[in-house]
């Protein structure tokens, strides 16, 4: 995709309609892709990673043409990209900016840190209640143990 603008402009304005997700930590880009199921959809997607950011060190950005997200869907990435910002694009214009927030429940994303939890023994979809949003602390629906930010692993 070519643009007459400078390369910095190209990153955020090159789609006509769709969503740009900015300020993703470079280290979690592929987790974001997986959580949102972007590896399974047919929309045009471009992403960049290890980009310099004034605020986040190295960041990543994803542009998805023709795709808009419900809050419930997009909030699923809050665990791995808490500072992500969404730009909703129509006619090359940013018509709305959104931020993500950690939802009250987390399903099928995180791994329970308790090695004795049933979710680590059988094929059970993990479920957590969010007991703290910052820093993140998740209470397992099954073993009732707390998984905190430090021990958080994404499936």
């Amino acid at each position: 995709m070519k643009s007459t603008n400078d390369p910095k402009q190209l990153l955020v304005s090159a789609i006509e309609t769709g969503t740009v997700i900015d300020h993703i930590p470079a280290s979690t880009l592929f987790k974001v892709i997986k959580i949102l199921g972007l590896d399974r959809i047919r929309n045009q997607i471009t992403f960049g990673t290890n980009l310099d950011s004034r605020t986040d060190g190295k960041k990543a950005i994803i542009k998805i043409a023709g795709k808009f997200f419900e809050d419930d869907d997009i909030n699923r990435i809050a665990l791995v990209a808490p500072n992500a910002k969404l730009n909703i694009i129509k006619d090359y214009q940013v018509i709305e900016k959104r931020v993500v927030s950690v939802p009250d429940t987390i399903t099928a994303i995180a791994k329970c840190m308790n090695p004795k939890c049933i979710t680590n023994f059988e094929k059970v979809t993990t479920r957590f209640r969010v007991v703290s949003k910052k820093p993140v602390a998740l209470k397992c629906h099954y073993c009732e143990k707390i998984t905190d930010q430090e021990r958080l692993e994404i499936i």
Partner: peptide, 9 residues
């Protein structure tokens, strides 16, 4: 059961 969360499951 010795596994935690097994009863909820």
């Amino acid at each position: 059961h010795p596994i935690e969360g097994s009863a909820r499951y």
